[in-house]
Design a protein around this nucleic acid. Structure first.
Lengths: 116, 116
DNA sequence: ACGGTCGTTCGAGGGTCATCGTAGTTTGAC
DNA sequence: GTCAAACTACGATGACCCTCGAACGACCGT
């Protein structure tokens, strides 16, 4: 309210704090996996509201926070929107090939179960 | 006891029932990830008791069941011992490269955190 | 038959998690 | 200044999960 100022900063774990177990747990929820897939497909930052998730807004906030705190995504405020993007650089450096494998597996499963 | 006989059968999900979310969830627990890593390193079937896990026996049973029901491992009784082995064939067919990526990531993290 | 080893089952406790509704905050536009 | 839009914070609820101890069942020796 006073000077402190227009920067609403969000806490992100540094690269060295990202833990494999946390990443896997974050990806093990269907809604979060879907978010990550759309983020990877878009290959740019997306606003939370453009995902059309089948849950309440407060639940959406929760899932994005889990993704951010596990190190999977980076988030910044741009006006009233909160933009999210994959931390592909950090993840590839820590766990080479992991993200692509999971995304490929998700695609394969979606194809197999007959659903985009 | 009678004729029925030495077959104590264990229920395994068929390949087509294995779900990526379930696999990732199973791998997101430190103890289960450790089991999978040792299984991959051994490249053969191992008895539950040869893992020296830092939990009670009933907890060990629980973790092996989660791994089996998620489709990650195959288990058979051999005498009093229960042997476990990775379902590498099924996993590679469903999710090519996923298992190797996760194992590689686990190795990288173990190396980085200074621990075998 | 007996004892020991290996693993299971059951119930319970404690924790985390996904979900929601409501109320509130920040921001951009009029 | 006011208003709507985007997101957050808070409390609550119900589910799931990791853990354990104690009692039981299956198997292999002797």
């Amino acid at each position: 309210m006073t000077a402190a100022t227009s920067t609403r900063e969000l806490a992100h774990p540094p690269r060295t704090d990202i833990r494999l177990e946390g990443v896997l747990h974050a990806l093990s929820d269907p809604i979060r996996l879907r978010i990550v897939r759309e983020l990877a497909a878009a290959d740019c930052e997306l606003a939370c509201s453009h995902f059309g998730l089948p849950v309440a807004k407060s639940t959406t906030t929760h899932h994005f926070r889990v993704l951010r705190e596990s190190g999977l995504i980076r988030q910044i405020y741009r006006g009233t929107a909160k933009m999210s993007g994959l931390r592909k650089d950090d993840l590839d450096a820590l766990f080479p090939g992991l993200l692509d494998s999971v995304l490929g597996a998700a695609d394969a499963q979606a194809r197999r179960l007959g659903d985009g």
